[in-house]
Write a protein that binds this DNA or RNA. Structure first.
Lengths: 118, 118
DNA sequence: TCCTGCTGCTTGGTAAACTGAGCGCCGAGG
DNA sequence: CCTCGGCGCTCAGTTTACCAAGCAGCAGGA
């Protein structure tokens, strides 16, 4: 529903975005994901469509669930985004490492970011 | 290599078993799964390792969940507990309502709260 | 200045996935 | 008997994933 921002949804761009979020260079990710940097470059730019094996390695290296990547790649589509969207708030609430105050702060920040999109 | 056989729980054998259970001929399944019968034959006999795309089609044709086949193929870990461990960080990363900058901000905040060592 | 080491990208090749056209075998009719 | 249609399998070829090596560009330090 709240798909206010999802400009491009290719698997490559998704990987690139996640890689940058994780502050990894192309070669770094390539190495931990056990693929060549050349190939990873092509994948991120949409030239090649990675196989599931590669996807799995990348998912591990990026610390996202393989299902997510598969869904993004179109290999799996029984994925409901709703659950993921609701995820942030729920994850924050359930996190045992956060104090109540911290949770409240993060929720406020999150709602500030995600909420007033309308 | 006198290993003409192996205790293979390969997807090939799994597919063949499922196909026979569904009372489908090789060509029938190949057609509904949109692959050539030649290829499907090779896959079932373990000569080729099918890509996720093929697996997805086969899963649909056999009316089994794609996850099951992926897990059999080793493309997916059978356990989804990874998702829970990832928790807040992954939820943030995957949220389509947050911009890249916003994600980074929230991750920084979260890490500050939850502990630098983690 | 010139290195040194990093970034991402391109090129050229190998191997693997995948297909089309055939093979031989078997059961059901004519 | 002899087609006919389906079965699974094989061979030859195309397409695509993937890697090794090397490119230019940029930052920083001697």
């Amino acid at each position: 529903m709240a798909k206010t921002n999802a400009p491009k949804n290719t698997i490559g761009e998704f990987i690139r975005a996640q890689r940058r979020l994780a502050k990894l260079s192309l070669r770094q990710l390539a190495q931990t994901a056990k693929v060549s940097n050349a190939y990873l470059s092509q994948v991120e730019r949409g030239i090649y469509k990675p196989s599931a094996k590669v996807l799995k390695h990348v998912a591990e290296a990026l610390q996202v669930s393989a299902e997510t990547l598969y869904a993004r790649a179109g290999f799996l589509d029984e994925d409901d985004e709703e659950r993921k969207e609701a995820g942030v708030e729920q994850a924050i609430r359930l996190d045992p490492r956060l104090s109540e105050d911290q949770k409240e702060t993060m929720l406020r920040v999150y709602r500030g970011f995600a909420g007033p999109a309308a």
